[in-house]
Amino acid sequence: MTTVTTRTVAYPADGLTMFGHLALPAGTGRRPAVLLGPEGPGLNDVQRRRADALAELGYVALAFDLHGGRWFTDPQEMLERVNPLLADPDRMRGIGQAALEVLRAEPQTDPDRIAAIGYGTGGAIALELGRDGVDLRLIATVNALTTGRPGEAARMRCPVWAGVGSEDPIMPPAQRNAFTAEMRAAGVDWRLVVYGGAEHAFHHPPVDHAVPPGVGYHPRQAERAWRDIVGLLAECVPLAP
């Protein structure tokens, strides 16, 4: 395990001042990097710990912000912010590009070896970066089987991996089918893993407020999804060039 240094980075995006969480591994040489997108409620300690875990492995990691430092506990209030965002690919790309610029500007980042990993809304943003033709080595999403504007998936320049819970009512089989049809039509190197028995947000530990039906933590499948993502990083963005 390497020593990790962390700091908060402020940057403008979507008309807000965002506050990302940057985690750096020990050493001074350039490393592959990971742009980490949070769930719809926003950036909290769960995503910060994910970034720290990636830095412990040796990656530069930036967990980016969605809501100007805010984390929503009211699902309805969150949806009022997130739904218009998810309906606007250009806004999503702007949020992702702003965070990517911060990550690329970090001296330890190797700008030619960057992966984007996202959960929920953060995953949708990672996919939109791919559809915008951003040079990434890997896009990995959990609970983010969003489809894009016609034909734009052909711009994706890296492997795309998606994970989803079998019991997720927000990403049902019809949504899975639409996503895989888009990937197939675009000739993308894609994979979809369905985690049996898992609901939406199965990867996020329990929270201390009410959640809608169909949302729930599944620790076994959460651990499996994390291992799958780490394995993908080793395959597509190895620490040794």
Results as ranks from 00 to 15, higher is better:
residue 136 L to I: 14
residue 165 G to C: 14
residue 158 C to G: 00
residue 177 N to Q: 15
residue 170 I to E: 15
residue 149 R to G: 03
residue 156 M to Y: 04
residue 135 D to A: 10
residue 187 G to F: 01
residue 155 R to G: 02
residue 126 A to T: 15
residue 121 T to D: 01
residue 157 R to W: 02
residue 175 Q to F: 06
residue 134 V to Q: 07
residue 159 P to Q: 02
residue 183 M to W: 05
residue 133 G to F: 03
residue 133 G to V: 01
residue 163 G to Q: 05
residue 188 V to F: 07
residue 183 M to D: 02
residue 169 P to S: 02
residue 191 R to G: 14
residue 154 A to K: 13
residue 185 A to E: 14
residue 181 A to H: 08
residue 189 D to H: 13
residue 131 R to M: 10
residue 186 A to E: 14
residue 177 N to L: 09
residue 175 Q to V: 07
residue 193 V to N: 09
residue 144 A to Y: 02
residue 125 I to D: 01
residue 160 V to I: 12
residue 164 V to E: 12
residue 156 M to S: 00
residue 138 L to I: 11
residue 133 G to D: 01
residue 185 A to R: 15
residue 161 W to D: 01
residue 194 V to M: 09
residue 195 Y to A: 03
residue 189 D to C: 07
residue 198 A to Y: 12
residue 166 S to G: 13
residue 152 E to V: 04
residue 185 A to K: 12
residue 152 E to C: 03
residue 187 G to P: 11
residue 186 A to G: 13
residue 120 G to R: 06
residue 140 A to R: 04
residue 163 G to R: 08
residue 159 P to S: 07
residue 193 V to H: 10
residue 124 A to P: 12
residue 149 R to S: 09
residue 118 G to F: 11
residue 129 L to D: 12
residue 138 L to G: 04
residue 198 A to I: 11
residue 153 A to S: 12
residue 120 G to P: 01
residue 171 M to Q: 12
residue 189 D to I: 07
residue 159 P to A: 07
residue 170 I to D: 04
residue 129 L to Y: 05
residue 191 R to M: 09
residue 147 T to L: 08
residue 169 P to Q: 03
residue 201 A to R: 15
residue 163 G to N: 04
residue 131 R to S: 10
residue 120 G to V: 05
residue 187 G to V: 02
residue 133 G to W: 10
residue 183 M to P: 06
residue 180 T to D: 14
residue 139 I to E: 01
residue 126 A to W: 07
residue 164 V to K: 02
residue 179 F to I: 05
residue 166 S to K: 00
residue 139 I to Y: 03
residue 140 A to Q: 08
residue 167 E to R: 08
residue 180 T to E: 15
residue 149 R to P: 06
residue 119 Y to G: 06
residue 178 A to H: 02
residue 192 L to M: 07
residue 158 C to A: 08
residue 143 N to P: 14
residue 166 S to A: 07
residue 197 G to T: 13
residue 133 G to E: 03
residue 130 G to R: 06
residue 149 R to Y: 02
residue 139 I to A: 10
residue 121 T to R: 01
residue 202 F to E: 09
residue 124 A to R: 11
residue 157 R to H: 08
residue 162 A to Y: 11
residue 163 G to H: 01
residue 174 A to Y: 08
residue 121 T to I: 04
residue 196 G to K: 13
residue 185 A to W: 00
residue 197 G to E: 11
residue 141 T to Q: 00
residue 129 L to I: 12
residue 194 V to Y: 03
residue 186 A to R: 09
residue 193 V to G: 10
residue 131 R to D: 01
residue 181 A to D: 14
residue 151 G to C: 02
residue 144 A to N: 09
residue 128 E to D: 09
residue 175 Q to L: 11
residue 133 G to P: 06
residue 118 G to Y: 14
residue 182 E to I: 00
residue 177 N to P: 05
residue 162 A to H: 04
residue 177 N to S: 13
residue 125 I to A: 15
residue 119 Y to A: 10
residue 189 D to A: 14
residue 185 A to I: 03
residue 198 A to W: 12
residue 176 R to V: 04
residue 119 Y to V: 04
residue 121 T to Y: 06
